[in-house]
Structures are given as structure tokens and as C-alpha cells.
Design a protein around this nucleic acid. Sequence first.
DNA 1: GTAAAGGATATTGTATACAAAATACATGGC
DNA 2: GCCATGTATTTTGTATACAATATCCTTTAC
Lengths: 223, 223
Amino acid sequence: MEEPKLQLMIDEYLPLRDVVFNTLRQGILRGDLKPGERLMEIHLAKRLGVSRTPIREAIRMLELEGLVTMIPRKGAEVARISRQDLRDVLEVRKSLDSLAVSLACERITEEEKKDLDNAEEAFEQAVRTKDVTSIAEADVKYHDVILRASKNGRLMQMVNNLAERMYRYRLEYIKDSRNHERLIEEHRKIMKYIDDGDTENACITIQMHIDNQEKNIISQLEQ
Amino acid sequence: MEEPKLQLMIDEYLPLRDVVFNTLRQGILRGDLKPGERLMEIHLAKRLGVSRTPIREAIRMLELEGLVTMIPRKGAEVARISRQDLRDVLEVRKSLDSLAVSLACERITEEEKKDLDNAEEAFEQAVRTKDVTSIAEADVKYHDVILRASKNGRLMQMVNNLAERMYRYRLEYIKDSRNHERLIEEHRKIMKYIDDGDTENACITIQMHIDNQEKNIISQLEQ
DNA sequence: GTAAAGGATATTGTATACAAAATACATGGC
DNA sequence: GCCATGTATTTTGTATACAATATCCTTTAC
């Protein structure tokens, strides 16, 4: 019996519940813990070397994040993602990303414009390395700059939460190097429109950007 | 020392954590627990007649809902709402409500059109009673019909969560009977546009609808 | 051979006990 | 009289103990 490798990343003075929460969250997002897999408290507690209490509190948090499903008197399992779920999430994301971009157009500072430019540069460099993880990280950073420029904390939090769910699928999308050119192209366009304060075109482009991901993820699921 | 009256509504076979969660949530939304008020575990446990464990788990959930703020090694307090917070939430809500309405335009069934009509009728009747709570409830029901018609579960959940935060303020808005005519007017318009599948106008109208609430809430805060 | 009943086991739900840290208050020194 | 230090108290963080329930396996009756 092989155990998915979970390792507590102890951040010194963070409560154990938060450490466990982050660990389990990573495990789910990275796919080490698979949808439908049961999360048994004692088992997890033993493996992570803590008591049940922090485990339970972490599970309560994951439950509200939507990454874990509770079955009454049965326990927790890693949330199963249905196609419907995926469609719902992408639909909302498209709307929120659009909002983020349009707010960014209005509110971005000169400083942030430079950050965006740097993030774009870093992304292109990551693409050249062909290392999937680097590309994914650079992509996240690029989108983060836009989100920050929107100056809306709530929006940042919500978009990040939604994007999280797509993580596993997005990796597959990035693996396919045929998409790389298009990704760079889209990033450049979005940056330019934001730079010019061209809200309308920026929105249209980001929507296309998400649409492309959506199509790809759905075709992944078909198989 | 007067205690805010919290009463456990025991729903037979629901875990205590959920009962406590609902109780505290109601308390916060109804304003019995005021922003900044500390939530001390033993204290709450004694008052609700349970142990600390369900209290703690409920607090973890409220924390992720955004209704409670954790201060490390200090404990939990009812989340303070800043003006910035409010602006952020309303900005996102405007976008998501817009999405809900436009999806509803595309996906609403004949059955749901009738539901919407009934909800609107009930709302107008509630307005005639002048009872603030009834009006608020009828309003929630009306918007719920639209959300359901959008056929997007994630969206429903997110909008409801955002709307929750406005609850206290919305009551004040509804109290002011000068707004009643406009509310009815807007509801009727939105219903008509959805009925006609006129996505564009439906979106514009719902945005105005939220804008009006926003202005009112902000002017409340000015005082 | 199959199905039902019963007990053993595993697992969640809840309460409590213990540890560590922060806070508040009092006491003593200057 | 004021500030600093130390101690008592409060409160969170964590672990464990106990209770209730569900699950699984075995045994027995038909």
C-alpha cells in the first residue's frame, strides 16, 4: 500500500490547523489526494504527527473552500468534480476575470504597469525553458499582477479560490507546447490593452483567454 | 451586563458544529453580535450548553465565510466591515448578479417564469404590509428564483455569500418606504426583460438595482 | 448456498484535560 | 508617584478520552 506523500511544511508559529490545512490543500490540488478519496482523521493525524483536533479544524475549512465533501456520520472525502461543476466554475471565472481586467484598466499605477511588463517577460522566459512548473508559476504571477492592480481584495481572493480548482487541468494545458505561442500572444495583447486603458478590448481578450482554457479542459475530460 | 440572546435551534440530527455555526451566523447577520465583539470559546460554550469543540469548528467555518476574523493567539472576533470591504463586495456582486441575470435570460424555463411571477406578486404584497422582515424575505426569494434559473450552483452559492454581508444594511434600506416604489418598479422591469430574453436590458437594470442599494448603504455609513 | 442477525471493529461526534501564551493586575524599587 | 517586573488569571492551542453510530465480517438458520 503506497501512501500519497504528504509532508508538513512547518511555518514555525502558524497554528497546526493552518499548517494541516495548507498541507491537505496542496495534496488535493497537486493530485496526491484524489477525488473521492476518504480523509480519515486518525489516519491523517498519525501520518502528519498531530492529534485529531487540528485535522478536524482543517477539514472544516477545506469543506467551506469546496475542496472536501462531508458525508454525515461517514466522514470527509476529497470533493469529486463533475463536468457541471467545472462549467459552473469557468462561467463564474470568466465573469470575475473580466471584472478584474476592467478594474485594472481603470486603476493600474505606473509602478504596476512595470510589474506587469516584468511578469510578462518572466513568463516568456519560462516558456522558453519548457519547464511546465515554471511556466505555470509564471502564469500565476502574471495574473496576480492584474488582480492586484484591480485594487479589490475580495475579488482577488475569490478569483484565486476559483483558479485553484483548475490547477490540475491547467497543468495539462500548459504541457501541450502547441498552446505556448497563443498564450504568449494573449498575454501580450491583454497587457497592451491594459496599458492603453482600453477596457473593452482587454475584457474581450481575457474572455477569449479563458475560453481557450475551457475548451481544452473540457476536451481533456472527454477522454 | 446584558447578553445578546443566542438560542440554539436544534435541528435534531445535525452535528452540533453546524447548529452552532448557524446560530452564530444568524447572531452576526441580525446584529446581535456586533463587529469587533470578541468570541470567546468557553464563554460561548457555556451559553450554548455545548463543549468547546463544536464552537471551535463553527468558528473555523465562520472565519472562511468572512464573518469572523482570527487574531493569532488572541482569538476570534466578529469581522469589522470597512468601507473598502463594502465597496469591494458590491463591485463583485454587481458583476455576479449581472451574470446571474444574463444566464437566467438564456436558461429560464416556463415553470420558473411562473415562479418568478409569483415571487414578484408576493413581494408586492409584502411591501403593502409594510413589515420590514417580510419585505426582506420576499426580496430574497425573488432573487433566489433568478439565481436558480441561472442553473449555476457555484454562482448561487457565491452570490448568496456576498449578499449575506449586506443583510444588516439592506434592512435599513428597506425600512425607508420611499424606496418601495422604486424597488417594485425595478423588480417588474427585470422580470419583464428576463421574460423576453432581453439579456442586455436585464443586465443594465439589475446593475442599476444594485447601484441604488450601494448608494443608500454608503450614505448610511457616512452618518 | 444464501440471507439474516449479531457482535466486533472502525470512525466520527463530543467533551474534557493539559500546555503554552498573552493579558492584567499587583507589588516593590527607585 | 511612576515605572518595571513578576505572578495570577484568562484564553487559546493541542491532545486525549469517552460515547454513539455505522460498517464489516462471521455465524447460524433455513
